[in-house]
């Protein structure tokens, strides 16, 4: 079965249309890269998938595991295995990372009819996952993302990902602001989580991440639409030629449509 199917999605915020007819289909086990210039709507897509309600979906359809995703509350989506690694992870003062994660994991487990994990089991489980992203254990007791460096925040997102064990993970520019070592750690983490049941949408600005995480498909996003899709060679082409050629093509098509109408 298809994991995610987005059909002709139109999204606006405050009277401004941001996604203008976006379509995308993802199967289990696949890794899709979404690339595009700043402001093209990549984060909007990610936030809409996670259920942020300030974005108004004016038309289109999103089906996740065969169900209408738009109907579901953000926490339901999460419990159904959807995960978003935020481009800008949010700080929650006074709430320890470990407490937060335990609450999250247990909410998800409860939804799936599993028993809550007790503190001891949870700690053992979490320590295992920390190794994967080589995260310092002190970050467990620190408040969620508060005072974390940029790199630590991104690593923490991947750490959350590994603990919550989602079916579809959306990574929004997790690579930005990471040095090469951190990038490798994050990529290794993601690669070790790849499995036939799980799919990834990796949103990135740079093709360098795709040297480490090899995508099955690459999509170029311009002005709220996916305008070109291909294999990983598309990423190299975008790196080489930039987006101007695609933007020109979109502008020409829009002009033609406008005059034709």
């Amino acid at each position: 079965m298809t994991m995610l199917e987005i059909k002709d999605l139109h999204v606006r915020v405050e009277d401004k249309e941001i996604l203008k007819g976006l379509s995308l289909t993802i199967n289990p086990g696949e890794v899709h890269a979404v690339m595009g210039p700043n402001g093209s709507g990549k984060s909007t897509l990610a936030q809409v998938l996670a259920g942020k309600d300030e974005y108004e979906i004016t038309s289109g359809e999103i089906r996740y595991k065969g169900e209408d995703l738009i109907e579901q509350a953000p926490e339901e989506r999460a419990r159904e295995g959807l995960f978003l690694a935020f481009q800008y992870p949010v700080e929650i003062p006074g709430v320890s990372n470990v407490y937060f994660l335990k609450a999250a994991l247990n909410a998800i487990r409860k939804h799936r009819g599993l028993e809550e994990m007790d503190a001891m089991d949870f700690l053992t489980y979490v320590r295992e996952k920390m190794k994967m992203v080589q995260m310092d254990e002190t970050l467990l007791q620190r408040p969620v993302n508060e005072g974390f460096s940029g790199g630590e925040k991104k690593r923490n997102e991947i750490f959350h990902l590994s603990v919550l064990d989602p079916t579809l993970a959306v990574l929004d520019e997790t690579d930005s602001g990471l040095d090469i070592d951190a990038l490798k750690i994050v990529s290794d983490g993601v690669n070790s989580l790849r499995s036939p049941e799980r799919a990834f949408i990796v949103i990135t600005h740079y093709q360098r991440l795709l040297n480490y995480i090899e995508p099955d498909r690459v999509h170029a996003m311009v002005d709220g639409r996916i305008v070109e899709s291909g294999g990983k060679e598309l990423a190299l082409k975008l790196e080489d030629k930039g987006y101007a050629w695609l933007e020109e093509r979109v502008a020409a098509a829009d002009a033609a449509a406008a005059s034709g109408a």
Binding site: G51, E75, I92, Y99, A103, A107, H111, H160, L164
Partner: peptide, 22 residues
């Protein structure tokens, strides 16, 4: 903050309690 909690599976009621207690 609420959305971040929600997106990790925590419902709003628990999230508010958590944030305020923090």
């Amino acid at each position: 903050q609420l959305f971040y909690c929600n997106s990790r599976g925590i419902d709003t009621e628990d999230a508010v309690g958590m944030i305020v207690n923090g």
